[in-house]
Design a protein around this nucleic acid. Structure first.
Lengths: 335, 335
DNA sequence: GTGAAAGCGCTAACAG
DNA sequence: CTGTTAGCGCTTTCAC
């Protein structure tokens, strides 16, 4: 009589039922070609009858492999990441990896906590949003000796794989589009102000300064962005700088919210005020007028991550390098 | 010399460094009050120095407890679930549970696959969207003998905990609001047409039929909903039924997309066409006019799930029962 | 093609 | 407060 037992059906139960040892059952599940066809069938039906569910922990412990990868994203409610995630998941699940999702809430402290958690789970790789991490997180990543992907933004000093786009350059390019269209008093609206939002804003500043224009018309908040916030912030900006000709919003949510506020005020977009967002979400094509935006190659980013990560997992050597997947400016009708 | 070894730092390494046995180190981590203060400190610093990361699989295997719970949601890009998820996660993480997220893509087959996956991971509870599952999924759930939560919709035959709202009733109530305002030719627009979308549509049908009105003005598609789709479907409906007075959209995305299309056509909302959505997402308060919608208590659902699930995890008996958390109609300005 | 033995890293149970 | 022993369910290794 065992002293401890979970009561769950184990390999051993299947083995006894079939009249073999558990290693044969194990093989039947993992390397069917090494087991005779008759046995294979009898084992399958025993598994079915008894309702056997493999114990992942036991397998991972014995083999030292978890067949899982952690994907950290800043926020579950931001659809920017869902396409990236789709590409990653399709690529990795095909290769037998389970993708464990965590969300950092845009906090590198929370990211650190999640890295720790998932390293305990024995993930075989980590995919992180952004390139800024806490010191302890970096130490954990180094010690873990597993492939790491940093994504969304590019960094000069990648830990391993780095796939994304130049957020600063993109911010600058969109601002330049305003300038090319003849707009001069162009403001910037930013929310959350995570690292990428800061880079986009810096791109705006650079473009404005290079054109010899003022960068005073700028409003930011640490609060999460939302449609409502876009409207409120637009109102504040117009109060303060009634001479505004255009606003570059750090993301599409803010831009859409700003557009709605313009509609309420019966302000014509783009004649009275030009607007632009960032990311190229579905909503930018649906509004009236469609919103100008920086279209980011999210699906491509996801696919690329999957491809490069699989290569690393299959033994490709560590060669830290950045891959710039670019962006595209879409003028919509709001600019 | 061990024959196999992962090379990772283990409890044993810490124990040797400190000069105790590994069980003491294990206790220092899990039940610090059972270990002397001096040892506690020395163990902590050894853990820090060597960079020890506990092996979750080993712990789970030995203790039979995974301290994790699976949360399945239909889609990562639908912000409807993010608030529910937040409530669940806050409540459970406080109690020491890790929440593993999976997304079913609105498919009960994929749900079945995920249930199987997470049962292998040894999750201590499962939170599922909806109350419809495959036969095999039900069998798996029964055999697992762990708490199960079915959410979003209510069911007569809950497997265990069921927290949500009456989607049919909500659809009916919103339709009744149209009728109360004097609208008669009220259509329905639905996308994806998962079970909840079907229930909402059935609510619309019931209300219309009870009022002796036609239910012909109805357009649905299996495609995922989006703003753009809302606009396109509105256009189709107006082509086919130019006499439409109002449209109840199965969700807020469609309603917003429909509103944008009205703006493009310079149709006044609600004078020429009344609109309503479902869920009460942020966007419904931001548009001009704000959209009528059925406000669902998502945060409350999440909190309630966490509370009731924790009770079950701490030993409360299985008492299958539904909890109806209701809904609220908000007229916005589009109805 | 199948089996026996050992061990992955940790915790339960009992002892002192 | 700390240690000893056994074992969780599986896979590796080596043997037949």
């Amino acid at each position: 009589m065992p002293r401890r037992s979970s009561g769950r059906v184990t390999l051993q139960h299947i083995a006894e039922r079939v009249g073999v040892t558990k290693i044969t059952v194990s093989r039947a599940l993992r390397e069917p070609h090494l087991v005779s066809a008759t046995l294979q069938l009898r084992i399958e039906s025993a598994i079915d009858e008894l309702g056997y569910i493999p114990n992942h922990s036991a397998g991972a412990l014995a083999s030292g492999r978890s067949h899982s990868v952690a994907l950290l994203i800043p926020s579950l409610s931001n659809s920017v990441f869902s396409e990236i995630q789709r590409g990653i998941e399709e690529g990795l699940s095909e290769a037998g990896y389970q993708v464990l999702i965590g969300h950092t809430g845009y906090s590198i402290l929370e990211e650190e906590r999640l890295i720790d958690t998932y390293l305990r789970y024995g993930v075989e790789a980590l995919i992180l949003p952004g390139s800024r991490h806490t010191g302890h997180a970096c130490r954990l990543l180094r010690q873990a000796r597993i492939p790491v992907v940093e994504t969304l933004e590019l960094t000069e000093t990648p830990l391993d794989i780095n796939v994304g786009l130049d957020q600063h350059q993109a911010g600058k390019a969109m601002t330049q589009t305003f300038l090319d269209q003849g707009y001069r008093r162009v403001g910037f609206l930013g929310a959350r102000m995570d690292h990428r939002a800061q880079l986009r804003m810096a791109g705006w500043e650079t473009a404005m300064q290079q054109a010899g224009l003022s960068t005073e018309r700028c409003l930011t908040t640490p609060h999460p962005s939302s449609y409502r916030l876009g409207g409120e912030m637009l109102a504040s900006m117009l109060d303060r700088w009634p001479d505004l000709e255009g606003i570059f919003c750090g993301n599409d949510d803010l831009a859409a919210g700003a557009l709605f506020e313009c509609q309420r005020r019966r302000m014509n977009v783009p004649d009275q005020l030009a607007l632009a967002g960032f990311n190229g979400l579905d909503i930018t094509e649906a509004t009236s007028p469609p919103l100008a935006t920086v279209v980011t190659p999210r699906r491509l980013i996801g696919d690329t991550i999957a491809r490069r990560l699989l290569a690393r997992l299959q033994g490709a050597p560590l060669q830290p390098a950045s891959e710039d997947l670019g962006f595209r400016i879409r003028r919509g009708g709001s600019l």
